[in-house]
Computed example of a mutant assay.
Amino acid sequence: MSAPGPKDVLHRYLRQGREVVVWKLEGLGEYDIRRPMTPTGTNLLGLVKHLAIVDSGYFGEVFGRPFAETVDWFEAHPEPDADMWATADESREAILALYERATAHSDATISELDLDAPGTVGHWPAERAEVTLQQMLVHVTTETHRHAGHADICRELADGAVGHRPDHLNLGGNEAARLLGHRARLDREARRAAGMT
């Protein structure tokens, strides 16, 4: 068996990040997937919406393969951060379906083009605008995993659920019962370091 090529490795990590973000919505009600969990408004459904637009743009328009549903999305929605939240009229199902269609379109681009295929990111500065598929795979994979981390925190704040998947908590063996004690210990150490005790 031969080792997977660089494109296959990058694509696998991108798909894993996408799966984590979508899984973070499972089992939550409408309020919890939409409510702002940080002072800047970060919320679970908004992260999915944002990633649908970003993923399809960087693997669509950049390579001359526009995804019709998100072409010129930011021009049509000029309100700052309109891609980072969902209105009450935008259903969970519609946004998840958009993400599924957008990533399928992106996956076709990734599959059909070579890593050195050229593209142009029109909204980047001219000196960085000329890119390759490899650069976009790294860029979008990094952004997806960054937002998966945001989703981790939002979900934990919403209902305490943690982990990469239901079968993989990725907490180094800490059981949920120990987490409360662990958090208290960390708080004590932070207070001690700050001279608060």
Results as ranks from 00 to 15, higher is better:
residue 56 S to D: 11
residue 74 F to I: 00
residue 19 E to G: 06
residue 188 R to L: 14
residue 167 D to E: 12
residue 13 Y to P: 04
residue 28 L to E: 11
residue 66 P to I: 06
residue 174 N to R: 11
residue 191 R to V: 06
residue 145 H to K: 04
residue 14 L to I: 06
residue 82 A to M: 01
residue 148 A to E: 06
residue 197 T to R: 06
residue 132 T to M: 11
residue 114 D to Q: 13
residue 127 E to K: 01
residue 72 D to A: 12
residue 166 P to Y: 05
residue 90 E to T: 11
residue 40 T to R: 00
residue 183 R to T: 06
residue 37 M to P: 04
residue 170 N to C: 07
residue 104 A to K: 09
residue 175 E to I: 02
residue 131 V to A: 09
residue 148 A to V: 08
residue 114 D to K: 08
residue 96 L to P: 10
residue 197 T to P: 07
residue 145 H to R: 03
residue 127 E to R: 00
residue 182 H to C: 01
residue 52 A to R: 04
residue 6 P to W: 11
residue 22 V to S: 05
residue 180 L to H: 01
residue 133 L to S: 12
residue 39 P to R: 00
residue 59 F to W: 09
residue 107 D to T: 15
residue 102 A to Q: 05
residue 22 V to L: 14
residue 99 Y to K: 03
residue 131 V to W: 04
residue 35 R to D: 14
residue 53 I to Y: 00
residue 181 G to D: 14
residue 110 I to Y: 10
residue 45 L to R: 05
residue 133 L to C: 13
residue 195 G to E: 06
residue 79 E to R: 03
residue 61 E to W: 01
residue 49 K to W: 01
residue 159 D to H: 09
residue 37 M to I: 07
residue 34 R to V: 13
residue 21 V to P: 04
residue 179 L to H: 02
residue 140 V to H: 05
residue 64 G to Y: 08
residue 90 E to D: 07
residue 63 F to T: 12
residue 154 C to H: 01
residue 43 N to L: 05
residue 191 R to S: 11
residue 106 S to R: 04
residue 104 A to E: 15
residue 34 R to N: 11
residue 147 H to F: 09
residue 129 A to H: 09
residue 131 V to S: 09
residue 97 A to Y: 05
residue 130 E to L: 04
residue 161 A to N: 10
residue 191 R to M: 12
residue 42 T to S: 06
residue 81 D to Q: 00
residue 57 G to D: 12
residue 29 G to C: 15
residue 105 H to P: 13
residue 52 A to V: 03
residue 84 M to T: 01
residue 3 A to E: 14
residue 116 D to W: 09
residue 104 A to P: 10
residue 26 E to H: 13
residue 57 G to S: 11
residue 131 V to P: 10
residue 162 V to I: 09
residue 147 H to G: 02
residue 103 T to C: 14
residue 52 A to P: 02
residue 99 Y to E: 03
residue 5 G to Y: 13
residue 88 A to D: 14
residue 58 Y to M: 12
residue 150 H to Q: 10
residue 133 L to W: 08
residue 97 A to L: 07
residue 83 D to F: 00
residue 163 G to I: 08
residue 58 Y to P: 10
residue 125 P to S: 08
residue 142 T to N: 09
residue 182 H to M: 11
residue 156 E to F: 04
residue 143 E to A: 06
residue 138 V to I: 15
residue 118 P to I: 11
residue 111 S to Q: 15
residue 181 G to E: 13
residue 164 H to S: 05
residue 179 L to P: 01
residue 47 L to W: 00
residue 114 D to S: 15
residue 88 A to F: 04
residue 95 I to F: 02
residue 115 L to I: 15
residue 191 R to Y: 03
residue 156 E to V: 04
residue 70 T to D: 07
residue 117 A to D: 15
residue 180 L to N: 02
residue 101 R to N: 08
residue 26 E to N: 08
residue 187 D to R: 05
residue 17 G to D: 01
residue 192 R to F: 08
residue 187 D to V: 13
residue 143 E to T: 07
residue 155 R to I: 07
residue 29 G to R: 14
residue 28 L to T: 13
residue 46 G to P: 08
residue 54 V to F: 04
residue 45 L to T: 10
residue 115 L to M: 14
residue 15 R to W: 00
residue 87 T to W: 03
residue 123 H to Q: 03
residue 15 R to A: 13
residue 193 A to D: 14
residue 75 E to G: 02
residue 36 P to V: 09
residue 62 V to D: 10
residue 6 P to T: 10
residue 161 A to R: 14
residue 98 L to A: 03
residue 185 R to Y: 15
residue 72 D to R: 00
residue 167 D to K: 02
